[in-house]
Structure formats: C-alpha cells, structure tokens
Computed example of a mutant assay.
Amino acid sequence: MSFAKRLLCATLASGVLFSATTFAASWQDSLSSAASQLSQNSGSQQGGMSLSSLTGLLNGGSQSLSAGTMNNAAGIMSYCAQNKLASLTNTDNIKNQVMDKLGLGQQEQKQDTNYLEGLQGLLNTKNGEQLNLNNIGNTPLAEKVKTKACDLVLKQGLNFLS
C-alpha cells in the first residue's frame, strides 16, 4: 500500500474513533441526566423511595429483602398473594404449609405481631430493618423490588418446608 493510502486510512479511522468517542460521551451525558431527573422525581414522590434506594435494594444481597422470621415471611406471603406480586402461583399453598409447620392457627395468627405486620406489607428483614412494601412506590423499579422481595420470601418458605 502506498503512503498516501495508508495516511488516508489512518485519517478515516481516527475520524471514526473520534466520532464514536464523542457520541459515547454525549450518550453518557444524556443517560446521566435522565437518571438524575428520574432520581429527583422518585425522591419527590409522596411515599415513594428514591431511585438510588430502590436500586440498592435490588442489587443488595438477599439479607435486605428476606424476612427475619418465618412468622413474618408467612404474613408477607399472604400480602404477596393478595397483591399478585410473586412469580409463583401457589403462594397461598406454601404459606399455609409454613403456617401449619409453625403451628400458627387462627387464634395464634391474630396475636402474632410478626405475622400481622407481614400481612400489612411490613417486611422485617434479616438485617433488622423494616421495609414497608406499600410505601416504596409504584414505579417499574419499585414493582421489581416488591417482586424480588416476594420471591425471596417464597424461597425462604420452601427452604423452611424442606
């Protein structure tokens, strides 16, 4: 290849790389701006959680969305079934088996605060925090957090039964 052709190819290649870099930087700025705006909107929702809080829950370990007690897990399973949040369709069946194994009859259910809190959507997590599934919002990300919590609690119930 002649020197002129190599120079032309090098010039074209550097132009393409420069354009791609500029486009990527522009795209990154747009993405950052959208995320920032979303975060501000989520944070300002009444009763909703911020984007970063929801993302942290989704990306966090199972400790942040798993029930600390099986009584609370049973209540959460009822909440999830009632609100159609779990990916499994037999949520009530699993919950009933867990309640039988725990010995939570009708009388005991009415007196067990962990179970009653779970029924209201209050998840008492393994790391000692309480997450109100009703108050985290209704954004697609919030719904993913609720579904993940329900799925993790269902897995806890299945593990408890085996």
Rank of each mutant, 00 (worst) to 15 (best):
T139R: 02
A4S: 11
A24F: 10
D112Y: 02
S42Y: 11
A35Y: 04
Q46W: 00
N127W: 07
A10L: 11
S53R: 11
N93W: 01
S42W: 01
T22K: 10
S39H: 12
A25M: 05
K110D: 05
K126D: 01
V98K: 05
K101S: 03
L88P: 08
M99D: 10
A67C: 12
A86F: 08
G121Y: 08
S30N: 10
Q40A: 14
N132M: 05
L85R: 04
Q28K: 13
S36D: 12
S26H: 12
A74G: 07
F3N: 09
L116C: 07
T11G: 14
T89W: 06
L123P: 08
G56L: 01
K95R: 15
Q63K: 15
S30K: 14
W27V: 01
N114K: 08
Q111V: 03
T55D: 03
L154N: 14
G61P: 12
C9F: 13
L58K: 06
G128V: 08
N127M: 12
K101W: 00
R6D: 10
L104V: 01
A10K: 14
N59V: 01
S2G: 15
D151Q: 08
A73H: 06
N93M: 07
L154M: 14
N159V: 07
T113L: 14
N93E: 11
A13G: 11
Q107R: 06
S19R: 01
N59W: 02
Q109K: 15
L119A: 02
Q111K: 14
A4F: 11
E143Q: 15
S26G: 10
A20T: 06
N135M: 05
S62L: 06
S42C: 00
S87W: 02
G137S: 04
T125N: 10
G68H: 08
S66E: 10
S33M: 12
G43N: 12
S64N: 14
W27P: 00
E129Q: 15
Q106K: 15
M77C: 10
Q45T: 00
N114E: 09
L123W: 05
L158G: 14
N72V: 04
A24R: 09
N124P: 04
D112N: 15
Q37R: 13
R6C: 09
T139F: 01
S52G: 01
L152R: 14
L102I: 03
V145A: 03
N124A: 13
G43C: 05
G56C: 04
S50C: 02
Q45H: 00
F160I: 00
G47W: 00
N83G: 01
A73M: 08
Y79A: 06
E117M: 09
L88N: 15
N114H: 10
Q130E: 08
S53P: 03
V16T: 04
F160V: 00
A81Y: 09
N127I: 11
S39A: 09
K155V: 06
D92I: 12
M49L: 14
V145E: 04
A34F: 06
T91F: 05
N134C: 07
A73Y: 06
G157F: 03
A35W: 02
N93F: 06
L88H: 13
K5L: 12
L8Y: 09
Q111P: 01
L85W: 01
M49G: 01
A67K: 06
